[in-house]
Design a protein around this nucleic acid. Structure first.
Lengths: 234, 234
DNA sequence: TCAAAAGTGTTAATTCTACACCCATGC
DNA sequence: GCATGGGTGTAGAATTAACACTTTTGA
């Protein structure tokens, strides 16, 4: 596998994505683990010279998750000098057995446009890329140490997600098409990091007039069956 | 005046700034007018190779306004291919009498990180840069046509400013240190584009516990003198 | 018939709105 | 005094929060 050539990509510009999923009551994100080094990083990539910025992000997410339709939001661009750590990138490339050319572009200073994505955990088929031997879900409050400023990027993503949660009613993007009110509440609680009152939550969601109610879900448990809901089409 | 050399700046990366000011009851932004062409653009610039992104923006704003301490917020990065219009940039450079080298870097595709700034209109000393013969204030609802996607950038800046107005209590950055409640209300009305109720506004601002009340301002008018207020230090 | 969880009704608390009222100021 | 605009009191409306109550389900 050859190293990517600078002629194909915009130099100095990258993107990083914080991909949120929800499973077993926990909010999680996708991380890559790099060969040999044992280092973790956000899934990111470069922008082709004739490609829209957002299309580059979608391309990268599709390659790694198999999903084409994804809720995607740009939230910040990171451009401090302190994030420039060529030795880290050099180690990662070398651990993959690459011989690094003189003045290789991937060792330059990079500015990174960060996006967060919300996806249905169940729909994903994870595929590692060339430099990493694994991509997997990690609980948001049990993340390993990340390279560069990726910790900061995750924190900012989480902060932005929380701020946008009510305004944009985006919690449903983390669930399957149909879900119970309890599941939706669990998503909100995981994102906000706090417990919510059951009855208030239910009333608030219903009053927003954004949910369609469908048939009941019989779980076999000995209690009233909850309704299934879906988000209204705009 | 020589053209800037690529060796000094990061290629393909620029910033644009939407600088808001408030004067005579109107919300305004700074625009540059380019020599000869009569085209208008946002004040922007490039990032030096060893410079933090935000420091580049501050440097540019200082050169043009003389202000060092500025409320500055990054709100979006624009990276669509459609914003790449080398002919426009070529025309601007040539109108300044420059001979353009082969493959000149300023004619490449650029990604622009956009910031908005809030400043006290009275404190500004405007200084044009090399390529433009004027920099001046323009009312937000009477803007001339702008080059590239700068119209879109302005709209997005305004939208973000409105969304952040209440959350971040930033309206005061457009006023002198001390101001009357009426002036503050005028700022909010100009930003939101709607009239607010005088008594409700006063009560709301006071209830937020973010203002210090100072001496009265005697204007010479035949009515009760309004108090001056300032924003509390954090 | 019981426990568990879902859904809704009701009342209290709080916040928001509208309007009125009083106050200070200069003529 | 009077007109003008600044500041606050208060009653009603609207929204939110808290708690209790009823319903449904399978054992």
């Amino acid at each position: 596998m050859a190293l990517p050539d600078t002629s194909q990509y915009i130099p100095h510009l990258a993107y990083d994505s914080v991909v949120f999923g929800f499973s077993k009551g926990k909010l999680k994100i996708l991380l890559m683990e790099y060969h040999a080094t044992g280092w973790y990083a956000l899934p990111g990539g470069f922008v082709r010279k004739a490609e829209n910025l957002e299309d580059a992000v979608k391309r990268g997410l599709f390659e790694r998750t198999g999903l084409k339709e994804i809720y995607l939001k740009q939230f910040h661009t990171f451009g401090d000098r302190s994030r420039y750590q060529p030795k880290v990138m050099k180690t990662i490339l070398e651990a993959n057995g690459h011989a690094i050319p003189e003045n290789y572009w991937m060792l330059d200073r990079f500015f990174s446009v960060a996006y967060y994505a919300l996806i249905d955990h169940e729909k994903v088929t994870l595929t590692p890329d060339n430099l990493s031997d694994s991509i997997a879900w990690y609980e948001i409050d049990r993340l390993p140490k990340l390279i560069f400023d990726h910790d900061k990027i995750v924190q900012k993503a989480l902060q932005t997600l929380r701020e946008n949660l009510d305004r944009n009613l985006i919690g449903g993007n983390l669930l399957p098409d149909r879900f119970t009110m309890n599941e939706l509440q669990a998503v909100y609680e995981a994102i906000l990091g706090e417990k919510l009152r059951r009855t208030s939550f239910q009333r608030k969601m219903l009053s927003l007039d954004i949910l369609d109610r469908h048939e009941k879900l019989y779980t076999g448990k000995s209690h009233k069956a909850p309704f299934l809901y879906s988000f209204k089409l705009t």
